[in-house]
């Protein structure tokens, strides 16, 4: 999910690593095989390190950018309790971003570098956050579907081979189930509400369903980077496996709400014991990844603006700390 658009060397990475140090590689892979955790100071192939840096940083960027579509409705939340819940949720997302940048930094990249990559448009973040939040029901849909999809992806990551990432994921997962539940709770209230509210709920599902399925990334056949990630236990399940599981879990939840999934081809396949769903519009997915989704420019502009507008503040804090260190030393 956080590797959408990740370019990877695939077979070339393995060959390059073998040249590095074949004995160390053999021992490294044996540790992975034995479900041991790799920690920051351990030897690791360069491709492992680089893949993780990109995946973890893109995951972190996703959390931070993800604060924007939901933050959009904080001032307009319909009750004081909902406002409190939404602030707490968005605060959690910022916190998740912080845990993840922390985890990535253990691999030898600085936060400043990662932020620069994001703001320069060189790093990716999850495609889903390039969609607009047009109504309050969107906040429900995001909690229910987007966080639901994220949980599906993140639970296996708790068993990722890299210690700091796995630990960050465990912390994130503990907090995430509140996120999905509050989203579904919003949808429940709307589904049981006025005609206008029910219409709002259906409209949100219509707009967020397919982008949520796209969150899991390209289908396995089209995905080139899976092999190495699976071998080194960075990726524990394939995109299609997770996407199928998400559909199977979520369709009954939509049924309970009394709203319709916008997929005419969707039906329960008795023989396969799973839901069959329609074709995803991969053209839309790739356009969004390329920067041509509804909100790509706005999201990046907002992050650049926050970063630029905050520069004098960060510099002031650093200057103050330096002055005080100097005074303390002189005392």
């Amino acid at each position: 999910m956080y590797t959408q658009g990740l370019l990877e060397q695939g077979g070339k990475g393995v060959a390059a690593a073998a040249v590095e140090d074949s004995e160390r590689l053999r021992r490294f892979e044996a540790r992975i095989e034995a479900e041991e955790k790799i920690e920051p100071k351990d030897w690791m192939p360069d491709a492992y390190r680089q893949t993780l840096i990109r995946q973890i940083s893109q995951h972190a960027h996703s959390e931070i950018v993800g604060m924007l579509p939901e933050g959009n409705w904080i001032t307009r939340a319909p009750t004081l309790l909902r406002k409190s819940i939404l602030i707490a949720k968005v605060q959690d997302e910022g916190g998740h971003g912080a845990y993840l940048y922390s985890a990535a930094e253990t691999l030898g990249i600085s936060r400043a570098e990662m932020i620069d990559q994001l703001l320069a448009g060189k790093a990716k973040y999850s495609s889903i956050f390039n969609y607009p939040t047009l109504t309050w029901a969107d906040i429900g849909a995001i909690g229910w579907l987007v966080d639901g999809a994220a949980i599906m992806n993140q639970i296996p990551l708790c068993r990722c081979s890299y210690g700091p990432y796995a630990r960050a994921m465990i912390r994130v997962c503990r907090e995430e189930s509140f996120h999905q539940r509050q989203g579904y709770d919003i949808m429940l209230k709307l589904a049981r509400g006025t005609a206008g509210q029910r219409r709002m709920a259906q409209d949100a599902l219509n707009r967020w369903w397919w982008p949520s399925l796209m969150m899991f990334g390209p289908s396995d056949g089209a995905s080139q980077h899976t092999a190495l990630s699976v071998r080194w236990k960075i990726k524990r399940f394939t995109n299609d496996e997770l996407r199928q599981k998400f559909v199977d879990f979520t369709v009954p939840q939509a049924k309970f709400l009394g709203i319709t999934v916008p997929d005419a081809a969707l039906h329960w396949d008795e023989s396969a014991a799973r839901h069959h769903f329609g074709e995803i519009d991969w053209a839309e997915f790739h356009e969004v990844l390329r920067g041509n989704g509804p909100c790509n420019r706005e999201r990046l502009a907002a992050r650049r603006q926050a970063h630029d507008a905050g520069r004098w503040v960060r510099e002031a804090a650093a200057a103050h700390a330096a002055k005080h260190a100097a005074r303390a030393a002189a005392a």
Binding site: S84, D92, R181, Y184, P252, F256
Partner: peptide, 24 residues
Amino acid sequence: FEPARDKIYRHPTFYDIPKEVETL
């Protein structure tokens, strides 16, 4: 971590999700 008692809306058990809805 222990829950912060007055911020109960953070916790999964705060929400009355009907039993029929599984897997939330």
